[in-house]
């Protein structure tokens, strides 16, 4: 029960003041003063600057560590957790860190259904055994041209899926994010077609690089990063790595995906990182790594050439 943190504890972890905030409380007061001053100046709010590491989150044990980002520097925890796209909690990069505290991540269960012999409705701890977590350091490339390197904790996706015995009809896997307007007030505005949905072809889902994450930087995932369970597909644009998953469905046909529904010309089903295929409105040849100023070159499949064989017979500019 390593990642079980909310039960039997009268104070929720989200209510505990992080150590660093406590020790830095004078500075925090100064920041509040500065924020109050800037409110009167309307439109001059400084960007968020929060705690260095959220020590309120339970730490997790890992059995194995794999570095899969070519030895590149891991992005700061502060940056990974305060620069998020999670539209259910707001459309700015700062909003999820501010608003995702409303999300209740325990108890959490996942429905697995569709083209499989052993469908189920399973508790998170039953789905992901907290005793056998591994750490993987992956590159993460957003379709918006920013990128980072993150140490995820979790398990490979394939063995989890196999437990539900997908049939030969299972050609795709669809994933769905929780959709609860009470916990996610921003969904009321209908920017995207909720619940957020994503999908992979079954062979993509079974690839050893496809990963289910429950943690980050040695601790439980912060809510804004997709707690308690998210997909991590490092060779695809970030929006494919769906957050806060409540349902996994094996399908015979290619499932609908949220960004594709919004802009079919701009966001394809595959959305593999590809410097040669531009987004209609911007080039994908380069990216800005968080923590760096000048843009760097984007790598094919985000630097994971081992997935190329999945697409050997496909024209990647048609199936973008």
């Amino acid at each position: 029960m390593l990642i079980k943190i909310a039960h039997s504890h009268p104070i929720r972890p989200s209510e505990i003041t992080p150590e660093s905030v406590y020790h830095g409380r004078r500075r925090f007061l100064l920041q509040i003063g500065a924020a109050a001053a800037s409110v009167t100046l309307g439109g001059c709010e400084p960007p968020e600057s929060g705690a260095v590491a959220n020590t309120a989150l339970a730490s997790l044990k890992v059995t194995k560590k794999t570095e899969l980002a070519g030895g590149e520097n891991v992005t700061a925890y502060e940056d990974i957790t305060h620069y998020n796209n999670f539209y259910e909690f707001g459309t700015t990069k700062e909003a999820p860190a501010r608003n995702a505290g409303r999300l209740r991540t325990r108890p959490w269960s996942v429905v697995v259904d569709g083209e499989c012999e052993a469908p189920g409705h399973v508790d998170l701890d039953e789905l992901i055994n907290p005793q056998v977590l591994e750490e993987r350091i992956y590159r993460h490339r957003c379709v918006e041209r920013w990128s980072m390197v993150a140490p995820w904790l979790g398990v490979p996706l394939a063995p989890v899926l196999r437990r539900f015995k997908p049939t030969s009809n299972a050609k795709y896997v669809a994933f769905y994010t929780l959709f609860d307007p009470r916990q996610m007030p921003e969904t009321g505005r209908g920017v995207l077609n909720w619940p957020y949905r994503e999908g992979l072809r079954i062979d993509e889902a079974m690839h050893p690089l496809a990963f289910l994450s429950v943690g980050l930087y040695g601790r439980v995932l912060p809510n804004q990063n997709g707690a308690p369970l998210r997909l991590t597909v490092p060779w695809k644009y970030g929006f494919k790595s769906i957050k806060s998953i409540v349902q996994i469905t094996f399908t015979q046909w290619q499932p609908e995906t949220s960004w594709n529904q919004l802009g079919p010309q701009e966001y394809g089903f595959y959305s593999n990182v590809n410097p040669a295929v531009d987004h209609p409105r911007w080039s994908q040849a380069r990216e800005r790594r968080l923590g760096e100023l000048v843009m760097r070159k984007t790598l094919m499949f985000n630097g994971y050439p081992e997935v190329a064989s999945l697409y050997s017979a496909m024209d990647l500019s048609t199936f973008f």
Partner: peptide
């Protein structure tokens, strides 16, 4: 002057967030 001064202040205090260029 005021918005420019704030931008300069935040830049020197490293308060521009994870992606200062975009900010």
């Amino acid at each position: 002057v005021v918005p420019l001064a704030f931008a300069v202040k935040w830049t020197f205090q490293s308060l521009l967030g994870p992606n200062p260029v975009e900010f």
